[in-house]
């Protein structure tokens, strides 16, 4: 569907994308996970043909994407990171304008507008000015405005920034449904939970480079441990934690111990030792490995500060 081959993009001296190669298959729900400034939006704008790479190439369904080639644009839809709507106009007026830009019109466009508004629960607000919408409603409209022309590939650039959980879930359900119907989606986010929940494949991007690529499970296997046990640092835990170093990796950050047992170290031994040291078991939290941990492992930094 979309292929990037050693794509590099610079803004004067800053390298926003650094030799990125990606291959998105039709029907995929691809997650692009990275912190602020990682290069997610830059990658989206290249995929949408808004910018040209400084080197490498971007291919859309085997054809090179260029500013001159207008027909290729019917294949893709871009949901910009910002609310790219005319906020002084109504929901319906917005959709009409964007539909018409794709050459749609008449009854067909009206039907599509009705369906689109219905699908994101905005039908009853169709004649309201977008300015009066809540953040979540604006996000939902921003999303369907990119789908009127029924693209095959949807580029979603952080479509859930700053919205309530309800709107967020509505957007998730909407996208999952569309994906099941065959829409290929590239979804950028800096929320690992979103990538975990939605995406069949995830690329972790930082400083313009794709650091890891694969399904959630594939990414998690990159971690040198399976579980992580977190417990508070108190005078009581001092001797206990000293004993643990022999059985795995122990870090102490901000008054909390993080213990990653060496593979094969049984948790039953861990808890028995804790009991002998007189530490209440309720103080322990067992954390499943997460993308957060993968990111931390890959970059030495947290995904979000």
């Amino acid at each position: 569907m979309l292929t990037l081959r050693s794509v590099t993009k610079r803004y004067s001296t800053l390298t926003a994308l650094d030799g990125v190669s990606l291959d998105i298959a039709p029907g995929e729900f691809f997650g692009l996970l990275g912190p602020n400034g990682a290069g997610k939006s830059t990658l989206m704008s290249l995929a949408a043909g808004l910018r040209s790479p400084d080197s490498g190439e971007v291919l859309l369904a085997d054809g090179a994407l260029s500013k001159a080639n207008l027909t290729a644009r019917h294949t893709l839809g871009l949901v910009p990171q910002t609310i790219a709507l005319y906020t002084d106009l109504t929901a319906e007026q917005n959709l009409r304008i964007f539909g018409q830009l794709y050459g749609l019109g008449g009854r067909d466009l009206q039907t599509r507008i009705d369906e689109a508004l219905e699908s994101v629960q905005l039908a009853d607000r169709r004649h309201s000015v977008v300015q009066t919408f809540s953040g979540g409603m604006q996000r939902r409209l921003n999303l369907v405005a990119s789908l009127l022309h029924r693209p095959k590939l949807l580029l979603c650039d952080e479509p859930t920034v700053g919205i309530d959980p309800q709107s967020r879930n509505a957007i998730f359900d909407f996208l999952e449904k569309r994906n099941r119907e065959g829409l290929t989606i590239i979804y950028s986010t800096h929320y690992m939970e979103e990538a975990e929940r939605l995406c069949s494949r995830i690329g972790i991007i930082d400083h313009g480079k794709i650091l890891a690529l694969g399904s959630l499970d594939e990414l998690l296997t990159q971690l040198p441990f399976e579980d992580e046990i977190v417990f508070p640092e108190t005078p009581v835990t001092a001797t206990f934690s000293a004993q643990l170093s022999a059985h795995g990796q122990l870090d102490t950050v901000d008054g909390r111990h993080r213990f990653r047992p060496r593979p094969g170290y049984p948790l039953s031994v861990f808890f028995a030792t804790a009991e002998q040291s007189g530490i209440a078991t309720r103080l322990f939290e067992i954390q499943r490995p997460s993308l957060e941990a993968v990111f931390l492992h890959l970059t030495g930094r947290k995904l979000r500060d």
Binding site: A48, R73, P80, L101, Y102, A145
Partner: peptide
């Protein structure tokens, strides 16, 4: 420009 509308418009078949 600030709203990002040009990104939307220019990703459509518009020059």
């Amino acid at each position: 420009k600030r709203s990002g509308i040009y990104q939307r418009i220019l990703s459509a078949p518009v020059r």
